[in-house]
């Protein structure tokens, strides 16, 4: 649905995106991940036809964004990093204007705006001037604007930036609810956002592709150990010694009042460990998996630079 093929963008001497390629299948949500100035916004601007690429191709649906810009733009909704809102319009007026320039037929505009308002939860503010509504609502108007013409492809640049935690959760669940009908790319530098909402991820740094693939594939590729963090009431060295006796356990170490247990991937020792702790009455208080996920990969890539 979205294909980026050997894309390069130069601003004078500065190369913002270098030879970037990735693909997103229909109906999926993918995250574009990278530190600040990695080239996320530039990539999105090229995909939306706002900026032309120096080299390479990008296509949305079956339309090349350079060769058939109008067709591509018709099936594309875009939330830029800076919200493109007219402060002197009411929410409804604004969405009607957007629907009109996105080629929604006049007869269907009212319905389209009504739907976008409903989906994004803007009913209570739809008659107010945009300059008078709160930041959270503005962000939702931005998303409503991207959705109003029911595009096949949504490109969201930092959709949850500047929101409070409750609003972030709302916007995330809104984005998740769009999965299936819409193909979505969202950029972010907030890691949990990717693990919670996305099917796949493209990690870029300094304009280069560092890794891309589905979340499972990527995390599997770096998961060479499985582990648990355990907290017991009686923090005795006995507990560590007993756990160490379980077949398959590689390492047990105590840290911050917790025990970190690791074993080889492919095994599942959780049952055994719990049984042991309960039978020996160590007083199991807490048990959680050691995070071995996209965050590790990301940190490795971004801080390590050349490691892949």
């Amino acid at each position: 649905m979205i294909a980026v093929d050997h894309l390069t963008k130069k601003f004078g001497d500065l190369t913002a995106v270098r030879d970037l390629s990735f693909k997103v299948e229909k109906g999926q949500i993918w995250g574009l991940l990278g530190p600040n100035a990695a080239g996320k916004t530039t990539t999105m601007r090229i995909l939306t036809g706002f900026l032309p690429a120096t080299e390479g191709k990008a296509s949305v649906g079956n339309f090349d964004v350079f060769e058939q810009p109008n067709e591509a733009k018709t099936i594309l909704g875009y939330l830029p990093e800076v919200l493109p809102l007219y402060p002197d319009m009411t929410v409804t007026e604004y969405l009607q204007f957007v629907a009109a320039i996105k080629k929604v037929p006049a007869a269907k505009r009212r319905e389209a705006v009504g739907k976008a308002v409903k989906v994004t939860g803007l009913e209570s503010v739809k008659g107010r001037l945009i300059k008078n509504i709160s930041r959270g609502f503005k962000q939702r108007v931005g998303i409503a604007q991207a959705l109003v013409h029911d595009p096949l492809v949504l490109i969201l640049d930092e959709p949850t930036i500047g929101l409070d935690p409750a609003q972030i959760i709302e916007i995330r669940s809104l984005i998740k609810s769009l999965r299936g009908e819409h193909t979505i790319i969202l950029s972010t530098h907030i890691l949990p956002e990717v693990t919670q909402t996305c099917d796949g991820v493209v990690i870029i740094n300094e304009g280069r592709l560092m890794a891309s693939g589905s979340l499972e594939d990527l995390t599997a590729s770096i998961r060479h150990k499985e582990g648990l963090l355990i907290k017991v009431r009686k923090d005795s060295p006995d507990a560590a010694a007993e756990i160490r006796k379980i077949a398959g356990v590689d390492k047990v170490e105590a840290a911050d009042g917790e025990l970190k247990v690791e074993w080889k991937p492919g095994l599942d020792l959780r049952d055994d460990i719990v049984r042991l702790l309960v039978e020996k009455r160590f007083g199991l208080l807490e048990m959680r998996p050691v995070a071995m996920n996209i965050e590790d990969l990301y940190l490795k890539i971004v801080s390590g630079g050349s490691e892949q």
Binding site: R45, T48, G49, F50, P69, N70, E71, K73, T74, L76, Y78, P80, V82, L83, P84, L85, Y86, P87, V98, I101, K102, K103, Q145
Partner: peptide, 14 residues
């Protein structure tokens, strides 16, 4: 200045 040009130029109007 307010960033709405990004909306205009990514819409299917010339």
């Amino acid at each position: 200045k307010i960033g709405t040009e990004e909306l205009l130029y990514t819409s299917p109007i010339s």
